[in-house]
Write a protein that binds this DNA or RNA. Structure first.
Lengths: 107, 107
DNA sequence: TTTCTATGTAAGTCATGACTTACGAAGTTG
DNA sequence: CAACTTCGTAAGTCATGACTTACATAGAAA
């Protein structure tokens, strides 16, 4: 039920860039914004969305706030994709079998 | 490079509903549209997007066109998420260690 | 051929959401 | 206390894209 929020959050290129920045380790908002072509408030809003999706966590650190990657939201998305992957693979193999059978039944 | 198209495609709820319908097996456009609260042309446009993303394949079948799930686009997305998962987990463990160390240095 | 079915495409409408600037709150430092 | 940082939020603008209806095309069936 929560993977929808996660995939919606990760669909935006700017938010993926933010997530990529956090791969190396935690960073405050200002640092993240400095490496991006958008304003700091924009990054703040994106981090809010990522946080709501469980993709990111925030820990206050004196004057600033450190954002880090969070495994939670990512995991839910992975489960969804794994399930989808299984069905797609099954459909693919079934189609291959049908096609082979079709060829055998050829007049 | 292609996972961006896939995640953008799957971000839309209607397209996810279409994909879910195709989990059971291939289906023509009309049948898919009948189970959804949107018009048939809308479904047609969505299938175009899903096809461009490598999430769906089309095989002409006489008068109609059968759409099936395709593993390709899904796999690229899985790889992206797996990589992200690894980094998130590493960041999480590192944070836990730092916090433990912080506690030891307390007084 | 004519007709019916199944589908893709064109064009136009409308809501969502990704930005911006301006402002206010909380903490740090002088 | 005052000034400076760092950040979140409010409000408003603007582009993107998810719909709709109307039309065009291709095959099946009469």
């Amino acid at each position: 039920m929560t993977y929808e929020v996660a995939i919606t959050a990760l669909a935006d290129p700017t938010r993926r860039a933010i997530v990529d920045r956090l791969r190396h380790g935690p960073a405050p908002v200002g640092v993240v914004a400095k490496g991006l072509p958008v304003s700091r408030p924009a990054v703040s809003q994106h981090l809010r969305v990522l946080s709501d999706a469980g993709l990111v966590t925030m820990t206050p650190q004196g004057n600033q706030r450190l954002y880090s990657l969070a495994p939670g939201g990512i995991d839910s998305l992975r489960h969804y994709l794994d399930s989808l992957w299984d069905d797609a693979l099954a459909a693919f193999q079934r189609a291959a079998q049908d096609q082979a059978k079709q060829k055998g039944t050829k007049p």
